[in-house]
Design a protein around this nucleic acid. Structure first.
Lengths: 202, 202
DNA sequence: CTACTGACATACGCTTCGTATGCCAATTGA
DNA sequence: TCAATTGGCATACGAAGCGTATGTCAGTAG
């Protein structure tokens, strides 16, 4: 039964991240007791401090994991779109859909920024924004999106609008109806980026 | 020296709010010790609990105060604009400028949402969004902004983009240059709302 | 003038975090 | 195979911080 050391360690890290993710995503970072959620993983705070330094370090690890998952989902959807513009729009709507999930809202949009500061400065996240930036750059090359626009800046602004969109839907009494209105408004804003406004390319 | 009771009470409340605002706006809500900032106001936690119930209650009071100030500034600027569209654009840019201030960023955009939840649900704030919503409604009546767009939804999305815009500028190495790029991208997005895209009204 | 309300301070216990320390299993080298 | 050593993780301890229960005194009412 000599199961290698490295595997045990990786398992411990994974268990801590999973337990923390569960706690942070439901009751929130501030309310999550380290004793409680390490205990629920069959460990103690000793393991946590050993692997992640402190509570913030564990939050960073959780965020890195979620960010990777989000990027994978976005790329998956975008890879199936026929045109570049459609790829970009699909990315945005997927982003909004993900932002509807309470865990992502709480960790990535609320507690994360409050504890770690501006998400744009996070070193181990932002894969989604990077992808959107790439696509915007390509669209500029195709002449679909107006030139003279900084792609990453535009991607960040759209991100901000997306997260607001998701929150508005999530907190609505009638998510179905609200979703229609929100997505319509969102697409209206996106049209401002088009080189020949009013005409939907692709 | 019979200075009325009510005045003393109001003064105590004001001192607590001011001290908390200072602390929350600099070191942040979580790091702000109630003993410390009540002490800096010449009071103790006893006064805090008596007037505001708990730490969250005091944060709500601080937010209400800041929100009122922001709304006043926005209205001041907007009242001087010649056209409705210009009024709306001025509101947006003023909002971005305010969001550049560290105190507002920290309290209204970071710690506030983390502690109190979705800002759209705050009962004692959101005066700025209300104003923007009104102006958008008026612009629809004038035929400047596309019909079939929910004004409050649009206002919220723009708010999200604005706060991202401000953070991008604030955290930039070269705020001057970044500001130009960000505002350009922001105005580009706004054009998506126009009924006849590409033509700037007013 | 007396009784009472309420603004605020003080005192206490509980929870939580971070560090210092200790133990034991797994690896390494001969 | 058997020391020696590394390091993963638990336990123990001290320091804050928060919330509540209680006390005190000024202001107000009848």
């Amino acid at each position: 039964m000599h199961r290698p050391r490295k595997e045990m360690i990786a398992e411990t890290r994974a268990k801590l991240i999973a337990a923390a993710r569960q706690a942070f995503g439901t009751i929130g970072y501030a309310e999550a007791s380290m004793d409680d959620f390490t205990g629920s993983a069959g460990l103690t705070r000793g393991a946590l401090y050993h692997h992640f330094g402190d509570k913030k370090g564990l939050l960073q690890a959780v965020i890195a994991e979620i960010d990777a998952e989000m990027a994978a989902r976005v790329n998956e959807v975008a890879s199936r779109a026929p045109t570049r513009w459609q790829r970009f729009v699909d990315e945005c709507t997927t982003y909004i859909e993900m932002a509807l999930e309470p865990e992502i809202q709480r960790i990535m949009f609320r507690d994360g920024p409050a504890v770690l500061g501006d998400p744009a400065q996070w070193s181990n996240a932002n894969a989604c924004v990077a992808s959107m930036t790439d696509h915007l750059t390509g669209l500029q090359g195709d002449g679909v999106v107006v030139a003279g626009l900084d792609p990453e800046t535009a991607a960040r602004l759209i991100n901000g609008a997306s997260s607001q969109a998701a929150q508005r839907i999530a907190n609505s009494n009638d998510p179905e109806a609200t979703s229609k209105k929100v997505v319509a408004a969102f697409k209206q804003l996106l049209e401002g980026l088009l080189e020949k406004p009013g005409r939907q390319p692709g």
